[in-house]
Structures are given as C-alpha cells and as structure tokens.
Write a protein that binds this DNA or RNA. Structure first.
Lengths: 159, 159
DNA sequence: TATTGTTATACTCTATAACTATA
DNA sequence: TATAGTTATAGAGTATAACAATA
C-alpha cells in the first residue's frame, strides 16, 4: 500500500520493510536448505533440551506447523525426535552434529542480512531505530486485543 | 520469531510491529465496515479518474484481488464502476458521495492509529525512525530480486 | 480430565490460467 | 497481437477438530 499523504505512513514503512527483509532472508537461508522457521527451531533447540511444544511457544509457531518443521529438520538430518525421559508423551528435539554446524552458518546468514539492512544507517540512527521500535512494541499498541490475531469463522464440525 | 542473541533482531522487530499495527488497523477500519484495501482503493480513486488496473498498481494489488475489492465497495455503496469514455474495455472507479464521506473518516482512523503508535516516541526519535526506515527501503535491501516476491511452483494446465 | 504430538481437513489469501470484449 | 476486466480454481500457509498415548 502506498503512502496516502504527507504524514508518515507507518503501515507502508513496516509492511514494505518487513516484506523485503523476509524475502531476502528466505532467499539467503534457502541457499543452505533452511526456512526461517527451521533456523528458528534449530537455534532454540540448541540452547537446551526442549520439547516440540516448548519450541512452538518460543517461536510463536502453531504446534501443527511445528510437526511439519521438525519433519523437515529430521529429513534433512539436522535434528531428531527423541523421547523425553520424564514425560512419555513428549519428544525432545535433539540437534545433530550436522545440525549444529548448519545452525552456526544460518545464524551467520541471519546476522549478515540484518547487518546489510541496518548498515546503511549511521551508528546513532541505528541505535535510535532499534530503541524506538522496541518502545513502540512495548507501549505503542496499547494492551488491547493482544492474543486475538485473525478472527475466523468457526469451522463446521465434520458431520 | 524471537530474538536469537544480543544483536538487534531486525526481523523480529519488523514482523512483530507490522503484525500488531496491521491487526489494530484492521480492527479500527472494520468498525466502519472497511478493510485496509478498501480504504486504499477508495482514497486513490478519490484523487482522480482511475481505472481498476491503475488502482491495482497504485496499491500493489493483483488485478484479480482488485475485482473482489471493487465488488465490496460497490456492494457497500461506496463506489461504482463506470465505463471509461476513452477505452471501452476499462472501468473508471467512481467514488459515491457516501464513499467520499467514508474515505474522510477512514483516513482519520488510519492517521489516528499511526499517531497512537508513533505517539509514544519523542518528536526527534519519530523523525529519526521515519527517516531511517525510508533510508533502509531505499538502500538497505540492495537492488537484487526486486520484483520476484514469492517463488511458486508452476501450475499445471487445466488439461 | 488435561496435555503432547499427530493426522486430516477446512479456511483464507493470493496467483495462475483461460476467457470475453475491446484496442 | 496485446490489454482490461472477469471467472474459476490451484497452491501455499495456517488454523481447527479429532484422535491416540500418556499424565
């Protein structure tokens, strides 16, 4: 959506920047066979023993999408599901040696893409930008419908 | 996606801020029966005689999505399709009196939501933020795969 | 009874293809 | 031949429901 008037069109700025960054990030990570989600899960799984549900919460991913993501990581040989020793329902996502190597590379890619985008700013502007964005996230959107993302019609039962 | 380390996670900041703003904007505009796209088309159509294709380009909307959006505007009595006097294939989107009234209100809503988000920042920080974001959009994402958004498998012909 | 992980499927969004009528 | 607008539908992503195993 294009700007409508002289006032700063925050919607346009955020949408466009978010879209461009997401596209570039996806392309950069695709070069080593990862999606952004796979990278996210891989990194969090490396930090400690985490179940799928815990990883889903950390990455704000639906648990059914997490199944797909973990399937992809297993197929790529980067992680394995192993039974939790304390809860026989749960699976710990264990990163393989190859997965740990890939995670280091993918983190470098993520950092590089972020640096490229932020690199066109002066150090001061960069600091202000990051601080201002954090401030907006904290206080700029009230405390209104925090946990009600997209309203959807209730689905009909399968008969 | 959550931050992975001490470095500023630009992806997280943009995604989260964009999502929150989009959600709030959608809720605010829904109160007067508009979507963000309807608002966008309405405002651009008010600026002058525009065909659907022209409006689609201005709002970066697919022409097939534009059909749906214009249908919605017509159903709501905010705009009408009228034949172009110079090209019998094309339709000018003419905003009705009611549509013009609604557009004024929706623009106020958009401005208000933006003000609420930016209002938590000092005037200086706000200026730096807007300038920095514009700078990133201009120079921060290279000139690489500009017009290649999401790669998709080629669709099979309908036989 | 509630929760973890899974499968199946429905919903929404958007893009592709094919078409009509004009240019 | 190419373009404006339309329709139909495929593809991708994601959310909902229902289920089995276990708590």
């Amino acid at each position: 959506m294009a700007p409508h008037r002289a006032e700063p069109d925050l919607s346009y700025l955020l949408d466009r920047a978010g879209h461009l960054l997401r596209t570039r990030m996806a392309a950069a990570l695709a070069e080593i066979g990862l999606t952004a989600r796979m990278h996210c899960v891989l990194v969090h799984a490396l930090e400690g023993e985490r179940t799928q549900i815990q990883l889903a919460e950390l990455g704000d991913i639906d648990k059914t999408s997490m199944v797909v993501t973990v399937d992809a990581l297993e197929t790529a040989g980067l992680a394995v599901r192993r039974p939790s020793s304390t809860d026989r329902r749960a699976r710990i996502i264990a990163v393989t040696d190859e997965g740990a190597k890939v995670a280091r590379r993918s983190q470098q890619i993520v950092d590089r893409v972020h640096r490229e985008a932020l690199g066109v700013l002066s150090e001061r502007d960069r600091a202000v930008l990051v601080r201002a964005m954090n401030r907006m996230l904290t206080d700029g959107f009230g405390t209104a419908p925090a946990d009600q993302p997209t309203v959807r019609r209730v689905r009909q039962p399968t008969n």
